[in-house]
Amino acid sequence: MKKRGVGIGCMWYGIGNTGLPNPAGAFVDWKDDATVSLMVGAADIGQGSNTVLAQIVAEELGVGYEDVLVTSADTGVTPDGGATSASRQTYISGNAAHLAAQEAKKVVLEEAKEMFGVEKNQVIIRDRRVFVKGQEENYKSLEEVIGGCRRKGKMTIGHGWFNPDTTGLDGETGAGSPYDTYAFATQIVEVEVDTETGQVEVLQIIAAHDVGRAINPLQVEGQIEGGSTMGLGLALYEEVKVLDGKIKTPSFATYLIPTSMDVPTMHPLIVEEPAESGPFGAKGVGEPALIPTSAAIANAVFNAVGIRITELPITPEKVLDQLAENQ
C-alpha cells in the first residue's frame, strides 16, 4: 500500500567561520569610461559569486551590471577572499566589494560636488549619470566626472575588506557570539511510502529560506533547488560504504546521487529579513538549502506510516524493518 505523509524540517545557520576571524578583501578600479574592474579573492565554484559581487558593485557605483568585469581567485592579482565555504562569500566578500566600491565612489562624489557646487551628500549617481538630488535633468555623464578626476591626477580606485563582528567561543562553556548573522529556513515535504517495498518517494519540497536579501533571485532559487536535491540524496540514497577503511562505492555506479528522475516538484520561496551588517542586507544560502531536507523527509515518513527512522540514509530495508517491528 502507498501512504502519503507531510513533514517539516527547520534550520538556522551562522554565516562565516565559527567565532574566528575570516576576512575577505576586494579591489575596485573605476576606469575612464566608467566601466569597472573588480578583483576579489572569492572563488566562484559554480554558485555564482562573480555575478553577485558584480551586482553589488554595479548597484553602489550606479553603473550597469555589464559594466563590471570580475577577476577572481588569483593570488597574483586579487586579495585574499578566504574560503568559498560557510556560505560566506555573498556576505563577506560582498561587503568587501561594497566597501571597495564606496571608496572609489568617494573620489567621484568629491569631484561632482565641486562641479555642481553643492554638498557631497546631495550628489546621486544612477544609470551612469551624475546629478544633484531633485535635478536629474541637469546631469553630467560619469565619464565626464571621472575625466574631471583624471585632469587633477586623481585615480578612482578603492579597496575594501570585511571581517564579521564575532567573538570566540569560551573553551569550557562555549559562550560567545560566533557569527554576526544567521540564515533561517523551513522546508515542508510530501512523501509517499510504499509499505510493500519500503520505498520512499518525495513528491514535493517546499523550501522557504530567509536569505536576508536575494541579490540574484534566480541564483538563490538555484541554490535552494540544488541544495535540497543534495539533501534528498543524503536522506534516501547516498552512503559511502566503508569496510575496514576501504571504500566499497568508488564510482557513480555504486555511489548513487539523485538523477533527474528522483527530483520532486520544487517550491523555492525567498524570505528577505535583512541582515544589518550584510551587503544590501544579504546573508547566505549555499549550505542552508541542504540542511533541513533529510529531517523533513524523516518526519514525513513518520507522518505517513508511523515509524521513526533514526539512521541515515532512509533505505527501503530500514523502512521495512521498522514497519515489521511496529506490527
Binding site: 533547488e225 543534495m230 538523477t259 533527474s260 528522475m261 527530483v263
Partner: peptide, 19 residues
C-alpha cells in the same frame, strides 16, 4: 524531458531549472 536527461548527472542545480 526529464527522462532524456536522466543519464546526465548534475550536482548543482537539482535539475528543475534544466528541465
Amino acid at each position: 524531458i526529464i527522462r532524456s536527461i536522466s543519464g546526465n548527472l548534475c550536482r548543482c542545480t537539482g535539475y528543475t531549472k534544466i528541465a
